[in-house]
């Protein structure tokens, strides 16, 4: 099993593919109109998929991720050992 960040990347691509969106994304790709063009319900669906696959997700804790990288960074931060 990969790191949470790589799992999250896999979940995002699986979601985009199923939603008939371009799954060829980078960390800089916007989730909204200037990128893959998700609407609020699609963001909600992605949020629930991330929660199912990884146990939590950035949107549920109040982080308004606007790019693919914002989501991946959330899981990277989780990997950092606490001080």
């Amino acid at each position: 099993m990969g790191s949470p960040r790589s799992q999250a990347e896999e979940t995002i691509k699986r979601f985009l593919s199923r939603a008939n969106k371009d799954a060829d994304v980078t960390a800089e790709t916007s989730l909204f109109a200037d990128g893959v063009g998700l609407d609020s319900l699609e963001i909600a669906e992605l949020s629930s998929m991330l929660e199912d696959d990884l146990g939590d997700d950035p949107f549920s804790v109040g982080i308004m991720a606007t790019t693919v990288g914002d989501i991946l960074d959330y899981y990277s931060a989780e990997e950092q050992p606490s001080a």
């Binding site: 609020s40 319900l41 963001i43 909600a44 669906e45 949020s47 629930s48 949107f59 549920s60 804790v61 109040g62």
Partner: peptide, 9 residues
């Protein structure tokens, strides 16, 4: 299902 973005899905 509760959802932070839209209340529920």
């Amino acid at each position: 299902r509760p959802n932070a973005m839209v209340g529920a899905i």
